[in-house]
Write a protein that binds this DNA or RNA. Structure first.
Lengths: 293, 293
DNA sequence: GTTCCGCATGAATCGATAG
DNA sequence: ACTATCGATTCATGCGGAA
C-alpha cells in the first residue's frame, strides 16, 4: 500500500488481520474489544481452537500496538473458556506473550456479570465474571478518572440505574475538561472514585447475536480513557456496541467486522442514532505513511 | 522420617516446606490458603520477591498435591501485585507451572472485596478483587453445591449481613448433609446456586494482625468441598482464620504457621471457641507410611 | 434497645527523597 | 542510575460513645 488511511465513524467489512495494516501508525486513542473466544462463534469466525488462540491473536495485537497512540489504552475483554473440564490457559499465555511484544499489562479490571448465563454442572457454578485487561504502551497514559466517579456508597448497585436514565448523551455534550471534577464540587464529597470491579448486567437483547457485552462496558472505558472527539477502535465490532458507545459519548468510532450481516446491522443501528455523523464518515481524513510527526 | 503422621485440630509451628513432608500421602480433604503475596508481609515471612515467587512456591504446591486426597480440592487465594506500574506476572506463571506439576486448574473464583484498600493514583483505581484459584487432582472431585445455596434474589448484598449475625456457629451444629436444601424446605423460599463470584468484605477489626481474608471466605469453600469431620489444611495459617472456619463447621483443621506469635494467637482464639476439640488434638491418629489402605 | 456519628484501620500504590 | 524508605492519598467497615 502506498499510503495508510483511516476512516472514522465507519465500519470496515473484512478480517482485521488485513484491514489493520492499512491504518496509519498511532492513529487511535483507545481500543476496546471482545474478540471471539476460543472455539466460539464458529459460524462467523474460523472458530479458533484454544491451542491456536495465542498464535492467532499475536499478529493482531502487534498491529493494534502499532495503530494505538503512545498515550492510548487497549481494553481486552476476554475469559478463559472451560476446555475439557479445566479453565483454558490460552488467555494467560496471551498476556505473557503480549508483554513480550512490548505491551504493558497495566491492570486487570473485573467485569462482574450480574445476570450471567444460566446452567448447572457438577464441578462448577455459573461463570459470572470476565477479565477486562488493560494494556498500554507507556507507563504514563491518558486517564480521566473524574469522568467515571460514582455516588458515595454503593457504586455497584446504584450506578447503573442512574446512568441509563440520564447520564448518557446529554451530560457529555457540555464543556468537557474537568467535567467530572465540577460535578464532584457541586455535590460536595458525595462522589468517589470507583474500583477496578465493574458491576454490569449483560444485555439480553437481540436474539440473532450472541450476547456480547453491555453498552455500559465500552462506555465506561471510553469515558475513562478518552475525551470528546477522540477515536475509538474495535477490531471485532460484532453488532456495533463499541461504536454505539462512542457515538453516544461524542467520540469517533472505527469498527472492523468480518461478518457482513453484523456490519449491516451495526450500520442500521448507528444510522438510527445519528444519521449525520455516519454521513460525515465519507469525508474523513487520510494520513500519508511516514509523513506524520 | 520413618513414619508420617498427621495431627488434626492442631497448628504446626514451622516452615511448611519442612512440615508438609512429615504428613502422610492423601490425608486431607481440602486445602484453603492465602500464601504471603510477593514482597508482602516482610516482617513475618521472608518477603519473597516477585521474580522468585514461582520458584519458591512450586515445591510447596508439589507437597500439597501429595497430601491431598484424590477427590480433594485446593483453593489458592492470591492476587497479582503491582510491580513498577504493571501487574506482576508471577501468579499466572504459577498457574501454568502448577499444571505442569499435574494440578488441574478447574476454576478461578473471583473474590470481590467490598471494602478494598483506599488510595488514589494516576494510572489505576483501587484493587477490589482477588483470585481464588480452584485446583484439583482429578476431573471428578467432591463438591457439595447444595451446602452453599443462597436465597433467590440478591445473593451478593444480603448474604453477608445475614451470615455474620446468626449463621455462624449455631446453624452449623445441626445435621449437616443437605443443609441448604432442608432450609429451603423449612422456609418455603426459593434457593438458587451461587455463581463463581463471591462478595465479601475484609475484616478490619483485629488490630494486632493483618486481617487477611474474612472468615466467610474459607467457610464458603469448606461448605462447598467438605463434609462434617473432613480435614482442612492451611499451610499458611496466619492468625487462624481457616482453622476457625473449619471448627465452626464441624470439620477438623490442620494448620502450619511460621510465625510463633500467630500460632499462639490462633490457639488462643480456637481455644475460646471449642476447648474440648483442641484438647483432643493431643490424641489424634498417626498414619504409618505405606501402611494406609 | 435503636440510630447516628466520629474514628481508627487496613495483604495498596505512587512519587519524591535519601543513601 | 538504582534501590530503600516515607508521606500523601483515599474509603468501606465496625467499633464505641452519644442522643
Amino acid at each position: 500500500m502506498s499510503e495508510q488511511r483511516l476512516r472514522t465513524n465507519f465500519i470496515y467489512h473484512g478480517d482485521c488481520r488485513e484491514i489493520l495494516p492499512t491504518f496509519p501508525d498511532e492513529c487511535v486513542d483507545l481500543i476496546v474489544t471482545s474478540p471471539p473466544y476460543a472455539d466460539r462463534r464458529k459460524n462467523t469466525y474460523g472458530g479458533v481452537p484454544p491451542e491456536k488462540y495465542v498464535e492467532w491473536f499475536l499478529p493482531i495485537s502487534a498491529e493494534l500496538k502499532r495503530v494505538l497512540k503512545p498515550t492510548g489504552s487497549f481494553i481486552l475483554n476476554i475469559k478463559e473458556r472451560v476446555v475439557n473440564g479445566e479453565r483454558g490457559t490460552y488467555v494467560i499465555e496471551l498476556v505473557l506473550e503480549m508483554r513480550k511484544q512490548g505491551w504493558l499489562w497495566t491492570e486487570d479490571y473485573c467485569w462482574h456479570k450480574k445476570n450471567c448465563y444460566p446452567g448447572k454442572w457438577p464441578n462448577r457454578f455459573r461463570d459470572a465474571w470476565e477479565h477486562c485487561y488493560h494494556f498500554t504502551k507507556q507507563k504514563v497514559f491518558k486517564m480521566y478518572q473524574e469522568a467515571v466517579m460514582v455516588p458515595m456508597g454503593d457504586w455497584a448497585e446504584k450506578r447503573l440505574k442512574k446512568l441509563s436514565q440520564t447520564d448518557l448523551v446529554r451530560d457529555e455534550s457540555r464543556s468537557k475538561s474537568g467535567f467530572g471534577k465540577r460535578v464532584a464540587n457541586w455535590l460536595g464529597r458525595e462522589w468517589v472514585y470507583p474500583t477496578n470491579v465493574l458491576h454490569l448486567a449483560t444485555e439480553v437483547s437481540n436474539k440473532n447475536h450472541s450476547a456480547v457485552f453491555p453498552l455500559e462496558l465500552p462506555m465506561w472505558f471510553i469515558r475513562l480513557f478518552t475525551q470528546e472527539g477522540d477515536i475509538v477502535l474495535d477490531p471485532f465490532m460484532g453488532s456495533g456496541t463499541t461504536a454505539r458507545a462512542a457515538l453516544k459519548l461524542g467520540r469517533q468510532y472505527v469498527g472492523i467486522e468480518l461478518c457482513k450481516e453484523y456490519v449491516e446491522l451495526a450500520n442500521r443501528t448507528l444510522q438510527a442514532i445519528q444519521p449525520s455523523l455516519i454521513a460525515e464518515s465519507q469525508t474523513s481524513y487520510t494520513v500519508p505513511k511516514r509523513k506524520r510527526k
